[in-house]
Design a protein around this nucleic acid. Structure first.
Lengths: 232, 232
DNA sequence: CTGACCACAACTTTCGAAATTATAGGTGTA
DNA sequence: TACACCTATAATTTCGAAAGTTGTGGTCAG
């Protein structure tokens, strides 16, 4: 039942509906990543159940899941809070993620087949459609960019053999997303060389040049994190 | 209301009650780690609520938490299952854990103070009390050994600076525990050189010899995993 | 004026029933 | 006989209310 095409405000309703239909877990994580809730803010059940229109049980399940992902903290009897942020944590997360991502892309280059290659090209294209846009239009579709950016990096390493390597990498990536958000409103952060960097990473990966791809990815991630630290 | 002292079967009721009083999450994890539920077995709510005497909501929260820890899998509408096991996964988990643990112990050696040292000695002593026992008595207290063993390795790295390093290390340790369980009933696995190995690791760590401690830990973990693989 | 104690309010946590969704078995038709 | 559909059953998933806890403000004794 997708009557989106009948809605007069098409472009808005498309993104809006997609956001609304996702489950509470995803919506809550998105709201925390995008600083909708400030770090260390209390997450009260009364407000949350109204905001997301779900029962307390469902909400509790989502919150406890987010706590094991590291996005919220929980203290017995005191409820849930948004996890704090710090420059030290960002530095550590960055190091772990780079470490994982480099190993993962190496494995993917070694084992990836035609489907893997094709998917990278496809996903990169969708990312470049947004990154090629002028500054203002990119800002409007920032949440879409976040999603495409995630898909692109995930596609790069999706052929890696280690299930846990992929899993650990993804945990760190989600955490990085939270810090990446602070660079949103700066032209350098949200634009700059991103377009070329992603293109170069893709080229090196498809050329099966693991050393080059690794080093490009490391620079790419470290640059972004260093910009974020200055803005924290 | 702990009328344990009135119970005639004291030693049994003490350990039993301690197990019963822990929350559902811990009990369920213990039951999965100790192969109480076979890998890939379905975890039905009807049976679970009776077994642990909790409501479906509480159970659901525990299960979804365990799914993000990797102990159970969940498919929307199909319920929860115990996560599968494989030799490949054990090898990967072992590599990740050794990697984390070596870095963590290095950091701990660098930053650890007197409290850290004292705690290691104390926790190692409690571990050695069990490991010094003859074979049959050790078997009886296997679940206690698991707990002490966890505490010992945790104490070694508890002074490491990286919060996420510690966290990631702990996730891998819990996963290893599940595989370690298969070596339970073999004399070599559950005894052998464990006593001396743990003592040597402690000595090297307290002597602040990071290189030696790292290499001893790597051997220690890898030996155990290789034994487990043969029995899988 | 200070400190402790008590009662009230707000919030978290848990439970069991109701609604929804998947599964298996059986019936009818080609 | 094979295939599809429909029904009954069994499971998951969600919700709202009740029970339990923690925090707070006020009162009374010292």
């Amino acid at each position: 039942m997708p009557p989106n095409s009948l809605d007069p405000t098409i472009s808005q309703s498309l993104t809006r509906d997609r956001a609304e239909n996702r489950d509470v877990l995803t919506r809550l994580r998105t709201d925390i990543v995008s600083s909708e809730f400030a770090p260390e803010a209390r997450l009260k059940f009364a407000e949350m159940t109204k905001r997301y229109d779900v029962g307390v049980g469902t909400l509790r399940e989502a919150l406890s899941q987010l706590s094991s992902e590291g996005f919220v903290t929980v203290e017995a009897g005191k409820g849930f809070r948004v996890a704090p942020v710090s420059a030290e944590e960002l530095l550590e997360i960055t190091d772990h993620f780079i470490n994982f991502e480099k190993r993962a892309v190496r494995e993917a280059i070694e084992h990836g087949g035609e489907d893997w290659e094709t998917n990278i090209v496809a996903v990169h294209h969708r990312l470049s459609l947004i990154e090629g846009l002028p500054w203002e239009r990119r800002m409007e579709r920032h949440s879409e960019w976040v999603e495409r950016h995630r898909e692109f990096h995930e596609a790069l390493v999706s052929a890696c053999q280690g299930q846990w390597l992929f899993r650990l990498r993804s945990i760190m990536f989600d955490q990085l997303d939270r810090y990446r958000f602070v660079t949103k409103r700066t032209p350098e952060g949200m634009g700059g060389r991103k377009f070329e960097e992603h293109r170069d990473i893709m080229t090196a990966t498809l050329a099966r040049d693991a050393d080059l791809a690794s080093s490009l990815i490391e620079q790419h991630i470290r640059d972004t994190s260093e910009r974020a630290i200055k803005l924290l």
